[in-house]
Structure formats: C-alpha cells, structure tokens
Design a protein around this nucleic acid. Structure first.
Lengths: 192, 192
DNA sequence: ACTAAAAACAAATGTCATTCGTTTTTTGTG
DNA sequence: CACAAAAAACGAATGACATTTGTTTTTAGT
C-alpha cells in the first residue's frame, strides 16, 4: 500500500514500455496496474480513461517518429531526402511496430488531438516535398500520396499480406518510393 | 425457446449484416445473439468462436470486393484497367467500410486462411498488371506497390488523416494512381 | 502534532466471451 | 404412432475487462 510515486507522465511512460513489450492489443488497465504494482482502480487517481491513455501513447509515438524522420532528412533534399524519410518511416514502424499501431489507431472522436498529430506528421514530409518545386496545391496532394504508399506498404507487410510471393520486400519498397520520386520530378517540371 | 433454424451460414450472413449496420467494433457475440433472437451461449452450437466468425466475415468480404474489381476491369487493359480497379477498390471500401475493416483485420495467426485470401485479392490485380508487359518479378513488386497505395490512401482517408488540408481527395487519389500508371509504363518499357 | 489533500484500496456494476450441465425440441427409426 | 437419440436451446457460472464509489492509509504542509 506504500505509494509508488505515480503521476500522469510516469503512467504514460509505463504504458509506452508495456505496449512495446507486450503488444498494443495485450495492453489493458489491468496489465498497466500490475506493471506499476498498484490496484487497477488506483490508476484513475492520475488518468481519466484507457482511451485517453491510448491517445497519449499515440501522441508520444508520433513525436518519436517525427524526430526520427527529421534526423534522417537533415541536410538532404529531393530524392535523397525522399528515400531517407521513407526508410526512416519504415524503420520506425518495424522497430516499434506496437507504437506504430498506437499511432494508426487514433480515435476518430478526438478531433482536436487528431488535428494536432496530423500537423506534426505532415511537417517533415512537406519539408522534403518543398525541394521539388511543386505548387502549394500539389504539395498537399503529393503529401497524401507519399503517406499512402508508406503506410499502405507497412500495413500489408506487418499483417503478413506480402508473404504470398517470395519477392524481396526491400526491393518492392524501393520501387514504390522511386515511383513517387519520378512522379514528383515530373510534377515539379510542371507536367500534368 | 422455439428453434430459429440457425446454422453456420446463416450466422455468418447475420454477422455480415450486423457488422455493416452497427460497425466492426460494435460487433459482438451478445449483439449477434440479440440479432438472431437467441441466447449468446446458443451460438456455440453452430460456430466455434468470435475469432472464427470474424475470419469468415473477412473472407466473405474479400469475395465481394474481388467480384467488384473483376466486373470493373472486364474488357479493359493498361491504364484504363488500372484506374478502373483502383476506383472499384476505393468505392468498395467507402461503401462497405466495416467489411473493409474486417478484411484488413485478419488475424496473423490464421496462416492458411490468410494465404487463401491473399491469393484471391492479388488475382484481379495481377490481371491488370499483365497488360503492361512486366517481368514476372516486376509483377510481384508492382502488385505490392498498387495495393500499398490503395490501402494506404483508404486507411488515411477513413481515419480522418486527410482532413488537415482542404485539398480534393478524389484528385489526390487520381494523382496517386497516375503515378503508379507512369511507373508501370516505364517498367514495361524495360527502364530501371 | 495535526489537518487536509493525495493516493491507495476493496467492493461493486455492468460489460464481454466462453464453458458446462440441463432441458426442450426435433428427427428418424421401429 | 411411439420412442430414442441427436440437435438446439437455455440458465448459471467463470474469469476477463473498464470504470465508479466509498473508505482507509499515507504524505505534505502548517
């Protein structure tokens, strides 16, 4: 019954660790309580709900992913930056697959939180795209294209959807990103 | 207590209807039991588990999606077929978003089931790609590229991840598919 | 040392999925 | 038509979960 010195931040930290360790789906209030040696009901002295905890973990994961991306693209531009951010994105998802799940499972209800996260996620991508000389409108479209390719690839890869054929997945990803690179170059030259 | 004339097929059908009506997440044994006017425990006379039911619904959804795709590409080839299948894919996902979720939430554990579903999904896509004159290896890569773009786009769109900027989403999708089309043409001409 | 806030607890509620044993209904055979 | 066996329903129970409430313990500030 001795106090554990808990607070909101520590619980979020513990949630991140626990989620990485046991998996996004195995995460629960009961598991978290066990992890911090406390009764499940005691958690509510520090946090409002499981939903809120999932959101906070997702936000923290976004920060880490964005940080990794920014480091990857530092000092680079155009195709070099594009491949760097694409690789960093995939590396993060593979290394922290459970955190990546937390990001992609954001509740649609939390509109303002989602808005904030979306802004952070788009930021380094727009930075890369800015070196291609696109119109403002095209930047918006191509930002979506790149995010679609990256997430779609990782989602399939992680779900085992690419296991049917034995082709090298790294090479598939390279081809996908090169495809976007070529499209960006063409768009940058003003081709429609 | 009068019998309801239930069986495995009818329960799967009911599950599909219920899932489309109430949503993938709201689906439960309790809801299904209510829907077919039976005690929850009675369901186990016909099916093994909720997991198995989710899998069956997912498989049924794959069949419907593939059917829609095949109709869309009938008699078409190259870019026309590509855009047709891409639009059919997105249309299906938007019209039956809860079924689409069921497809994308396949359990990784069910390896043979996943294998079967994967084969079905890839089939119409390979049919489209076959008109581009790719090598067998390239077909495998580009099949992955196209699936990544389509699913990634829908996942983001459906999660509200494309709401941050007011750009037209239809146009973003068109650009994404055109990007793949251009890549396919180049690959078909033997460019590396 | 004492008071008040903070943090822990136990117990309870209302969800689930699933299992078990029992009762009811139907089916098929004599 | 009767009767036995199979099939399908049920209720009750188990153990998981999130969350609420009321109570007790611990700590911090005075």
């Amino acid at each position: 019954m001795a106090r554990q010195g808990l607070n909101r931040e520590k619980l979020i930290e513990a949630s991140i660790s626990l989620m990485e360790e046991k998996g996004y789906n195995a995460f629960s209030m009961a598991e978290l309580a066990k992890y911090v040696h406390v009764n499940p009901s005691s958690l509510y002295n520090h946090i409002e709900s499981l939903d809120m905890l999932n959101t906070e973990v997702g936000l923290a994961a976004v920060e880490r992913m964005v940080e990794a991306e920014k480091q990857a693209i530092a000092g680079k531009s155009q195709d070099e930056a594009l491949f760097a951010i694409a690789d960093a994105y995939r590396d993060f998802a593979k290394t922290h697959i459970e955190l990546y799940r937390a990001v992609m499972n954001f509740q649609k209800t939390q509109n303002q939180v989602l808005e904030k996260a979306a802004g952070r996620i788009v930021d380094p991508i727009l930075q890369v795209l800015s070196s291609y000389g696109l119109s403002r409108g095209d930047q918006m479209h191509w930002q979506r294209v790149l995010r679609s390719v990256m997430h779609g690839f990782i989602a399939h890869e992680e779900a085992g959807g690419f296991s049917h054929f034995p082709a090298d997945r790294d090479e598939s990803y390279r081809i996908a990103i090169q495809c976007v690179a070529d499209g960006l170059c063409a768009a940058g030259r003003g081709e429609k």
